[in-house]
Write a protein that binds this DNA or RNA. Structure first.
Lengths: 211, 211
DNA sequence: CGAAAATACGAGCGATTGCTCGTGTTAGTC
DNA sequence: GACTAACACGAGCAATCGCTCGTATTTTCG
């Protein structure tokens, strides 16, 4: 499989109409991906959803991969501000259970607000570029959580807190989907259990050596 | 997309040669899937890998989905015995940290021994049948872990232990891949952190009410 | 042995899909 | 108003992939 863009873009002077179309196409791509996944999201389907012909689509994106590449900055941007709100410096003053609770709610809210990103960051084989962007985003979120942890545990090495943040977020990402197909009782039990696990772990991680 | 087999199989009396071929095809499918993922695993590629023509392949499996369906019992069978060894009744007598350690090692070993299963159980959109089989396997493993927990915490409701087991396994499945692209130091830190998180959580879950 | 069933082959069909191309329309600049 | 580049269209190309079909060989069984 040949890599995406072989050469740099041919430098086209976009007009306002074109920029608007690009946004519409990206919106459509987001919607289609959220519904059927990235691999199953056809370019013709995206074009149709955007109310645009396939030919027009390829006037803005040279191939399917470039659509994905253009989608990444949006997500990174939006996720960045989203998590900045949820895991800001004021979170460092709350009790750990509160931080965990806020983080869980934030994750759920983000998943509902941007379902396509959920699909993309969990879909397996898309592109190395997406994997890199996803990893960057995870690293950034983890760094934010690690900062919250560091504010209350200055004596713990930063590397340890970073690992702890990554672990906690990965665990949360894995467990949260378990709440989807479950009845209310089990869903509450899962969330309670997850909260207990994360709270206990992060408290021990900010308390000192945990090995 | 139409569902898999519309009618029941036409009842063919398989000869020894045919049964051997079916195993070879399934082995090939396993290898190809482990390499490129299920969706990207072409039937022609599987046939070629098995040293068989596409036509021969379709004499044993009516469509690609049936290959997947035939792969599932193998995995369920092998995983069942695998986990039975790791989480047998003797595990109930070990300290919790030991149980967690054994489980983690078991998961890593299983992933290395059966990479295709790792791909299948993490691949997103394959088939409802696979999703069901995967869920069954996870449930079975969770039940086994829950039994180990129940042996040391008879007073805790079974439903709570089941949830705890599911959470612990999901978290482990999510965190373990973090050890892949990391240097040795970070890998050890991740495993140590995961072990600490799971041990703490499962100990609190078997101690009593955790909410 | 001889017939029927099972196994084997591989070219290629049919459908899908990412993408092109020839042509026509609209916006920006002088 | 005229010229150019950007925008727009949609039929259809080329490649892929799941799968079929006509035919030939091997096994089973009377």
């Amino acid at each position: 499989m040949p890599d995406n863009a072989s050469g740099p873009a041919p430098a086209v002077r976009r007009q306002r109409r074109g920029l608007r179309r690009m946004e519409e196409i990206l919106d459509a791509a987001e919607a289609v991906i959220a519904e059927v996944g990235y691999e199953e999201a056809g370019t013709n389907a995206i074009a149709a959803r955007a109310g645009v012909s396939p030919g027009s689509l390829y006037q803005f994106f040279r191939n399917k991969g470039e659509i994905l590449d253009a989608l990444m900055p949006r997500y990174i941007e939006q996720s960045r501000t989203f998590w900045a709100e949820q895991l800001g410096p004021e979170a460092a003053r709350l009790p750990m259970a509160e931080v965990v609770d806020r983080t869980l709610r934030a994750a759920i809210a983000l998943k509902d607000a941007r379902p396509a990103f959920w699909v993309l960051s969990h879909g397996s084989a898309t592109s190395p570029r997406l994997a890199a962007a996803s990893a960057e985003l995870r690293a950034e979120t983890a760094a934010r959580l690690a900062a919250v942890l560091a504010a209350r545990a200055p004596h713990v090495p930063a590397a340890d807190l970073d690992v702890a943040a990554h672990i906690a977020l990965a665990a949360a990402r894995a467990v949260l989907p378990m709440t989807l197909g479950a009845d209310a009782g089990r869903r509450d039990a899962v969330i309670a259990g997850l909260r207990a696990m994360l709270t206990g772990y992060l408290e021990s991680a900010t308390a000192g050596r945990d090995e």
